[in-house]
């Protein structure tokens, strides 16, 4: 199980890139951290989600 934004999801083994596109995230509006490390956008495809990972996907909305 991988904890993503506080919810346990059965996505261990998938790449971050695969998870994000299957969840309909807009890649231009997000910041991703896994176990307190920010993942550079260029690493999304080569980052694999592992059992026990704690992931936060921050998706930004407009206004300021």
């Amino acid at each position: 199980m991988v904890t993503i934004n506080g919810v346990n999801e059965d996505v261990a083994g998938k790449t971050l890139s695969e998870y994000l596109s299957s969840s309909n995230y807009n890649l231009q509006r997000i910041v991703v951290e896994i176990n307190e490390n920010i993942i550079p956008k260029t690493d999304y495809e080569k980052t694999t989600l592992n059992d026990g990972d704690v992931v936060e996907v921050v998706s930004f909305v407009g206004g300021g």
Partner: peptide, 14 residues
Amino acid sequence: EAFDKAEQKAMLNN
């Protein structure tokens, strides 16, 4: 970060 556009916020933060 004090931008208004979501894409700009994400770009700056990343």
